[in-house]
Nucleic acid binder design. Structure first.
Lengths: 214, 214
DNA sequence: ATGCTTGGATAGTGCCGGTATCCGAGAAGG
DNA sequence: CCTTCTCGGATACCGGCACTATCCAAGCAT
């Protein structure tokens, strides 16, 4: 497959493919001579993965590169690759540690994890990027005058735990074809937008049920 | 409160506040004379709302303007303002209707809604932006070779329905102080990042439990 | 041989959220 | 009253991001 064919098969313009090659999101093709490079099914697959992450998952290009780096890291065992890749996904800046809302939110969230008994509580509370996003969002709610306590989030967390179990079951059902962390990462990235969409639909539904037609 | 004080109270730079004023995200202050305008608590509140939507919710400025337009639309009853505002939130381009994956995903998702018995099924299936996002994400999954059927999504949808019920309960518990659609919109926008963060934490937790420490 | 295509390098584009600069009108102080 | 400082508004500009357009020399096809 040459670049133009790769483009035709994927629906991604050659210019964009070149850009991804430059950015290291796609490994270079096998160079046949100075003007021809050949790409295979693996490239096509990777290209679709990249596109899905960027377009559907809204993951920034730099983050995609980082995530793929973990996926391809042969020095890590399979389970850890997934962990490392997911770890790299969130793009939340470190919150201002002096902000009183941030401090309060962090304390409250640590308490939440303890209440839930998630092992994160000891292991990675303050380091996980996901935990950071949680703190940032929680602090924003408080700053706006919303009053909540960690206990109120417990049911949310339990439901998301159930969702995570579904995720894992889904992923495991898929691994048959290729035993790659790539598969798992994609699952994580693509399930999220679906979840968000379902959430909003559910809100529309529930709000219609409670308050009548729109 | 003058602009500089508004800035001090909110932590948003005067330049940015001016930008928001220009963009119509913030109503102009009461003009005292040619060089002084006065802002009140309502402005501060609105400013924090805007910041939260943009920074935490990652909502584009143009969308914030649209959402606030609905929130402030006095011609609509309260319940409908929320609906209209939430309706305006997603920013998903219309998918290519000729794409076979999109067509398949749309059919599957319509079936899912029928299975769930959500009233959306009749009322707004093909018009809701959330439904559109769902179709786009589902099509992307299929295009990448993930095999799923509408039934597999049913448990996800049921869990999100439960989440939506929590959302509504939370919002209703908050309406005491100000009976405004603003409150509800914020709930919707800010709960989402928290939910995503909880989801990822739950994945970390569940993946650690299944596959061992990271 | 000639014209077309190929892949690589480089520079440019459009959007978006925000920032810097300039300005004239007033407030503050002596 | 005059100077100096600050205010708010208008305008131009900036930096990051995801592409995209242009150029070029090397090869392939006829």
């Amino acid at each position: 497959m040459r670049l133009a064919e790769l483009s035709a098969h994927s629906g991604v313009s050659t210019a964009t493919i070149k850009y991804y090659l430059r950015e290291g999101l796609l490994p270079p093709g096998r160079q046949l001579n100075a003007t021809t490079a050949e790409y295979d099914e693996e490239h096509l697959r990777r290209l679709r993965l990249v596109r899905a992450m960027i377009q559907v998952g809204k993951v920034p290009v730099a983050t995609v590169r980082e995530v793929l780096g973990h996926v391809d890291d042969d020095s890590l065992p399979r389970a850890m690759r997934l962990g490392a890749a997911v770890w790299a996904l969130p793009q939340v800046p470190e919150p201002d540690a002096d902000d009183e809302f941030v401090r309060g939110a962090r304390t409250a969230m640590e308490e939440l994890l303890r209440t839930l008994g998630w092992s994160n509580a000891q292991a990675m509370t303050s380091t996980s990027p996901s935990f950071r996003s949680l703190v940032v969002a929680a602090a924003a709610l408080r700053r706006l005058g919303y009053d909540w306590s960690p206990e109120m989030l417990v049911p949310y967390a339990r439901l998301m735990r159930q969702v995570a179990e579904l995720d894992m079951a889904f992923m495991e059902s898929q691994v048959s074809e290729a035993e790659k962390a790539e598969v798992a990462v994609l699952g994580v990235v693509l399930v999220e937008p679906m979840l968000r969409a379902l959430h909003r639909l559910a809100q529309e539904e529930e709000s219609t049920r409670r308050y009548g037609f729109e």
